[in-house]
Amino acid sequence: MSMKKLTQKMEFKPFVVLLVIIFLCGIISGGDFFKITIVDGHFYGRLIDILRNGSRYAILAVGMTMALGTGGTDISVGSIMAISGAIACSIVDERILQALGGNVFLAVLLALLAGAVCGAWNGFMVAKLKVQPMVATMILLTAGRGIAQLIADGKIVTITNDAYYSISGGYFLGLPVPAFIALIVIVLFLILTRSTAFGMQVEAIGVNQASARLAGIKVERNLWIIYILCGITAALAGIIESAGIKGADCNNCGLMIELDGILAVAIGGTALSGGRFSIISSVIGALIVQTISTTIYAFGVAPELTRVAKAVIVIIVCLIQSKPFMDRVKSLMPKTAKVEAQEVHA
């Protein structure tokens, strides 16, 4: 009974998939994959890499889950990452706002604020003007990278600041810092969606906006909140990324990452048309995406192929979520079985 309940959980399937993929990767790589060494009290190894690099995706996926849960989307996350990275790095490097004296804490805070502002803009377009979310966020997708360029004055901002580096490269209790940041974000979002009615309201909006409104849900306000949160999570991911590459590269930071976000959420099982969502599933989805990328990379396959592979996975997941497609597959199944049976008889 409890086993049945467990398998029915939305998180169950993606979790099994993650385990299988990690296991497969382990076998293919001949055990190297699971090797974890301890140097100076820090853990090292491929799994730790996945945890470190996957954190960024996980944070992004958490915000994206909410946007997709309402039946919307936010494809501007990559640009928001570029903006937040540019702001944080420029402040730390004292290119802008010299009065702050390169204070890392304030730089991060302002970068997050910038993310919130970008999110509020998206929220304004979606909630207030009722523009289709994809078109609304596409404006920032394009303009955002330009804005980041203008902040960074068209240059790649490189910085030297150990405190800032440690946001991505640091260790805490032997584990990478980003993993803890991701953990905090996940816990905060779980509290938000489960200890308040927010999660249920988001799902109701995603399923049927008109009904949700007449049931007294403040659709507009909730959409604002979601897009702002999405902006903040994207900004956080941007900060981690820029700390990782020790600088802000506005052209490439978070480039095309929106698909990774959507992919993580889709693999997690949230329908791209909105409704039921699970933050934990999406985080697991993000780890799956990262495991695949890390493994492909480890095999020395060109990174370009990763993009192709991800696109193919998105298409497959979409097809699996598509009812007409599955109906067609199902209707084909018994037929092929019959044909095989006939052949055997012949």
Binding site: M200, E203, A204, V207, N208, A210, S211, A212, L214, G275
Partner: peptide, 13 residues
């Protein structure tokens, strides 16, 4: 259908 029920949610919700 359009303005009343929230189809994919449970009866409890």
């Amino acid at each position: 259908k359009k303005e009343g029920i929230v189809g994919d949610l449970t009866i409890r919700e």
